[in-house]
Amino acid sequence: MSTATPSATDMPEYHVIETPHHDGEEHPHETGTMLGFWIYLMSDCLIFGVLFAVYAVVGQNYAAGPSPADLFEIDMILLSTFMLLFSSITYGFAVINMQQRNTAMFYLWMVVTLGFGLAFLGLEVKEFTHLWHIGATPSTSAFLSAFFTLVGTHGLHVTFGSIWLVVLLIQVGLHGLTAENQRRVMCLSLFWHFLDLIWIGVFSFVYLAGVLQ
């Protein structure tokens, strides 16, 4: 719910104003926000594309340091891959429950999603601290600089996605599943599934192809 009064038309509005449509139903798609957010995701995709390109170029410059086969534990990567995959499908269930106006189940699935997201982050922090502990820091070699930049950027995205998820749950708790909050849930849905998609590239290109060479 906006705090601005609807009569003050000369006041600048800093949020998308929901106007009721002909049939009175709420369509989160009709404000243009979803398309705008999608285009943001595409620009984010380009950031990851460039980081992948950097990794492709310098990823084999070990500077006499450790190589992927020395460092990566593939079974842990499989586990974190499944954490993200589970969180993707539980988010999907949350969206379905939102559309069915089932707020309690929506909450449940969102909290489960957050749990899987945090489990993924925990595994990543564990991996990074382990690497740091054995001296495989970004300054060791070009390979490790590119590795930490690429995987770290993805991890930061998941971190901010989790913060967003918590804030969104508070907003839904305060205001309910309003049209604005539904739109936000759909934006975070795109963001969350997008991060899982980027992770496919990371585990294929960095981890699996890395330990083979």
Partner: peptide, 18 residues
């Protein structure tokens, strides 16, 4: 195999999740 299946999985995500 790794890159081929990765590409297919990206398409699966784009279709079924996004």
């Amino acid at each position: 195999v790794i890159f081929g299946l990765g590409a297919v999985q990206i398409i699966v995500h784009v279709h079924y999740f996004l």
